[in-house]
Design a binder for these strands. Structure first.
Lengths: 204, 204
DNA sequence: GTCTATAACCTGATAGAC
DNA sequence: GTCTATCAGGTTATAGAC
């Protein structure tokens, strides 16, 4: 895979399979997906899936690694960066991170679900624990409110951000809410997050 | 199934299968579960699963209906009850509801995931929308703070409550956190929730 | 009600022609 | 690289003996 101009779209068979795999694995999960589904979605022959990726599991690991990176890898480096102010971090998660989730609404549920069902499969092996607990983000929280448990606080922020996307099927698939209405609700949500984060931090 | 004294434990084959199904479906999801897993877990013969429940899918629907009821059916009636004060409602979700989640930690991820994968399977057909939007809970929120969007607020409370259980595999399965430590963290969390809920409500 | 045996089908993966 | 054909193993579900 040599250099390609950015304006060109990669339409190679390999890439078509990867695209299809991203979609189908996201929708149906690992066990709910058959390699035939991926081949059909990609519009290619069944045998080619194994020709390019050797096995269903290897292809899944590849996709999963991308998903985990998208969910955590883009935001954690920002949060633990000591040269970004606390307020700036909150602005980023309330704006860019919600935008990313709007673009990838079933990313969180997929990642959490697959981690639960197979915590050792994909070669990610993140150790969020030590990375986070000694991070500048935790220090910044403590500075603002020394009586708060930073981990409990972080769980609440991420919960406020991510949970609406995990609950999305309740609104959209089940409750019959229009997708556009749901997206508008999430856009509207951006303005609440910083206010509520600060309210929590200054509480008591 | 006639009346049984409450002190008696139901050890019938039918009940053993149901118990096993609850456990295995929770752990592995619908597609990740084989009927053999359920038979083994129940300690009974494979054929008996179909004898009692006709099919894997029917058994799953049964379990799923229970799970949905446990997650929503126990709390929604309390929230929409006009004769319970707002503060009392918050106390209940911060205490009893978290206790229930500690007892059933993978209940939320199972329910949200399966609703996403198959929003029409189990005959629940909840319509949370109308039920909620005109509820006394929404009115009580508006009374406290008329400038807040009650739905956004509810998403945040439920997110703060439920998300830590959805993220549990990150701590326990992946990060190697001891289960007892995790439970203690969730117990500790009870005292934060009412404070933070009120902080959010009084913000701005 | 419970068991063994097996039917009927599906799924991941590969061999081999082109 | 791409296709067809097929294998080997696994899965749900049932028939029939006890």
């Amino acid at each position: 895979m040599a250099a390609k101009r950015k304006t060109e779209v990669d339409t190679s068979t390999e890439e078509k399979i990867k695209q299809a795999a991203r979609k189908v694995f996201s929708e149906k999960g690992y066990f709910g997906t058959r390699t035939r589904d991926i081949a059909d979605e990609a519009g290619i022959n069944l045998a080619l899936v194994n020709y390019y990726f050797r096995s269903k599991e290897k292809l899944f690991d590849l996709v999963m690694q991308e998903k985990v990176y998208k969910l955590f890898g883009t935001i954690v480096p920002i949060l633990i960066n000591p040269s970004i102010s606390f307020d700036a971090k909150i602005d980023i998660v309330s704006d860019s991170y919600i935008d990313m989730l709007i673009e990838n609404p079933d990313l969180p549920i997929m990642v959490f679900n697959e981690i639960k069902h197979n915590p050792n499969s994909f070669g990610v092996k993140m150790q969020l624990g030590p990375l986070f607990l000694e991070s500048s983000f935790f220090k910044q929280i403590k500075e603002r409110n020394s009586s708060i448990d930073p981990l409990q606080f972080v769980l609440s922020i991420i919960g406020m951000l991510v949970f609406p996307f995990i609950a999305r099927p309740i609104f959209v698939n089940m409750g019959g809410m229009n997708k556009e209405v749901y997206i508008e609700m999430m856009r509207e949500r951006k303005k609440y997050i910083p206010i509520w984060v600060n309210a929590i931090l200054d509480a008591k």
